[in-house]
């Protein structure tokens, strides 16, 4: 379902292969307008794009730099990606053919962002966060695990063994007690080898 009028925003932009609108910080696909070749992976791509911007922010933070609305351009032999933050709660990603000059990609990206900024005014900062909060933290942690665990097909079984929480309880994350949730969080950190979860 199209939420924004992305075709209108993309009209007349040459070499454009797709636009992804991603909510931050949960890295979920909000809307997209992409070629079929990118369509199937768009949910997974959204998560990875979100991580990309998050990691770059962390790099800048460690280097003592700061940018209110970060931009990243990624070049490959067949594609040019331009990522722009929009407010604190959206990330826009534009995929172009590699033949487009980088400067043009940035220019088109800025123009489309301005158009979308207007459309996104209806989605006030915070409203998405509240919506995200409705999804229980446990569910988001489990989604995170499934997304990043090296063997996702078995990640829930591993979590059940690590925590001692039966699978059927893990499958109803909203019902987990705070103690169970703490166990889940610790186990997910152990499985992924990370110190803390920012979800």
């Amino acid at each position: 379902m199209q939420i924004l009028n992305l075709p209108a925003a993309a009209e007349g932009v040459p070499a454009l292969q797709g636009i992804f609108v991603i909510t931050m910080p949960d890295c979920l696909l909000f809307d997209s307008y992409v070629l079929p070749v990118l369509q199937e992976a768009s949910e997974e791509l959204s998560a990875l794009f979100g991580e990309l911007i998050r990691n770059n922010r962390e790099v800048l933070r460690l280097m003592g730099s700061w940018s209110s609305e970060l931009q990243i351009t990624v070049e490959s032999s067949d594609r040019l990606l331009h990522l722009r933050e929009l407010r604190e709660d959206f990330l826009l990603v534009f995929a172009f053919e590699a033949s487009l000059p980088i400067g043009m990609a940035r220019l088109f990206g800025r123009r489309i962002s301005e158009t979308l900024q207007f459309q996104l005014e209806g989605f006030q900062e915070g409203s998405l966060e509240e919506e995200a909060e409705e999804s229980p933290r446990a569910a988001r942690i489990l989604e995170f695990l499934q997304r990043y665990a090296p063997d996702p097909h078995a990640s829930m079984m591993r979590l059940a063994l690590r925590t001692g929480i039966p699978m059927e309880h893990l499958e109803a994350p909203a019902s987990l007690s705070p103690q169970a949730l703490a166990k889940v969080e610790e186990a997910v950190c152990d499985i992924l080898g990370i110190d803390q979860l920012n979800v």
Binding site: A149, P150, D190, L192, G193, I194
Partner: peptide, 8 residues
């Protein structure tokens, strides 16, 4: 797994 997760 080295590129996917950090072992502890």
């Amino acid at each position: 797994y080295g590129e996917k997760v950090r072992r502890r």
